[in-house]
Structures are given as C-alpha cells and as structure tokens.
Design a protein around this nucleic acid. Structure first.
Lengths: 142, 142
DNA sequence: GTATATGCAAAACTTTTGCATCCTT
DNA sequence: AAGGATGCAAAAGTTTTGCATATAC
C-alpha cells in the first residue's frame, strides 16, 4: 500500500506534510526519530513545514496505530513505524543508536506476572541502556 | 543509618530541604514521587521550599545513588528510593498506582540478549502499563 | 568566616493550542 | 464550496540556571 493510500485508509487527507513525514519514516535509515529530528530533516530538504504540524501529525499517526511513541529519554518522545512484530529496544547511551530485539520468554513472563498481580496489561516498554561495544559502528549510527 | 548521616556520607550538607525530602521518600506510603508531588507535599506541611531546590536535590540524590529516576510518563520524571533489590514496575494508567516486581529469568535473558548484540548494559527499564483489576484499590492509591 | 545551599525570577526545552489562511476533496 | 489542515505565534508544562541572600560547618 502506498503512503497515499495509507493515509486515506485511516481517514486523513493526503497532504504534503503528512506524506513527507510518513515517507521519511518508511525510507530513513534511522528508524527511531524525535519530532525535532523529523523537523530538521524535512527542513534541510527544503520543505517548509511548521514544528506544530510535525507534532500534530505524529500524534495523529500514533493514534491511528501507524507509529509507536517511546520514552527513551526523559522529556522527549521518540517515534518509530509500527512494525508487524512487536519488539523491545537496546539504546546506546553514548551515540543514541537503537537496536531491536524480541524474546518470547520475556513476553510470556510479563503476562504471567501481570496476571498474578491483578493487572490487565495494555502496553509495555522494555529498554536496555548501555554502550555499543564497537566504537566505529557507534559513531556511524549517530 | 539516619537521614542526617546518610547525607553526610555522600558529601552533602545536612540542610533542612534535603532532610525533609529524604525523609519524605523514606516515610511516604507512595514510594514513587514526581518533583511536583514532593513540592506539593512539603509545601502543604507548611515548609517553605522552592521548586528549583527540589529539582536540584532530586538530581543530587540521583547522582549519589540514593534515588532512581524513572520515565513512566512522557515529559515527567518519577523518583523512588534506591532499594537493596532491583525491581521493575507495573503502572496503572487509570490511577497512577505503581506496583513492583522482580523476575530473575527476565533479568537473566536481558543480559544474554545484550551480550549477543554487543551491548554492555548499564541500566534497564521495564514498565508494564495497564489497569488495576480492583477499582477500589485503584482509587485508594491515587 | 568560608564554602555551599537556597529562593526567586528568568530562561530553556518540549509540546500544545488559538486563529487566520490555505489546501484537499 | 466546505471541511479539514497548516503555519505562526503565543501559551503551557517541566526542568535548568543566574544571582543575591542565607545556612551549615
């Protein structure tokens, strides 16, 4: 499905800002972006777009299930395309590089624990913070 | 060790604001507090204390290892006393109640995964979000 | 007495909102 | 043409900082 149809299917008009933002997430090497990063990238490409629009669109995309919001850092949201497969994250505190992983056993135990404690889980976030062991790769992904 | 000695041992002067803040965490029923909650609680007790001081002290306590900072919500830090035993959190999205848990198997698998992916873990955060099943308790812990 | 800590006000930073204008359908 | 979307500027919420004053040792 094209980005254009993608927008229509969630009931949003296919405007230039929305198309550009969605395409950025689909084609960027960096899968995890903050509002500020989206703004800077698009502005650098010569697109005239307001930061307020970025925030509005990111929120709409999140509500439509197109994007997921993470709170890797204090006081700053990071977004990524919702992928078919849920996953958790390793975040390098040196260079900001984000790696993804999935572990079925961890998922299962989370559910068990929530059940035992009388919670109905709607969501969860598991982030491992540390340092890439490879300094070269660390730099490249900054 | 008293709060007083506790402060001295980390090289901080035992001032009234610091003593009050530390004591609050030690004696409060609510183990997880934001800067604003600390401010409001102490102000309500009649203590004249600036919000800036709260932030400075919380940061110092965190750096000294006395408190841990969590990012349960977007854009707002939550602090708790560092306890002898590391643990993770369930957060009720309805009432804000926070429950703690520890699972050795999850911990172990996290380490394994990080090793496999070439990360050296310095920290991690696992938060399960959902709803308390008991509405009564939910309200009481608000 | 000296160094450190505090309070206040102002500023920084991220995110949201009001409103006039513009664009998609 | 009509409703929704955008851009700008102002505002809101959290956290930080500069500086004069106050406090701990």
């Amino acid at each position: 499905m094209s980005s254009f149809d993608n927008l229509k299917s969630i009931g949003l008009k296919a405007t230039l800002p929305r198309l550009k933002i969605l395409t950025l997430f689909e084609e960027s090497k960096k899968r995890h972006l903050t509002a500020e990063e989206v703004y800077k990238t698009l502005t650098d490409e010569g697109l005239e777009i307001g930061l307020a629009t970025i925030y509005r669109v990111l929120t709409q995309f999140e509500q439509a299930g197109l994007l997921i919001r993470h709170n890797f850092d204090q006081g700053k949201g990071t977004f990524e395309l919702t992928s078919s497969q849920h996953h958790d994250h390793l975040v390098c505190t040196k260079c900001g590089h984000v790696e993804e992983f999935f572990d079925n056993e961890i998922e299962k135990r989370q559910t068990d624990i929530a059940n035992k404690l009388g919670f109905e889980i709607t969501d969860h976030s598991l982030n491992l913070y540390g340092e890439c062991k490879n300094p070269a790769e660390c730099k490249n992904n900054k």
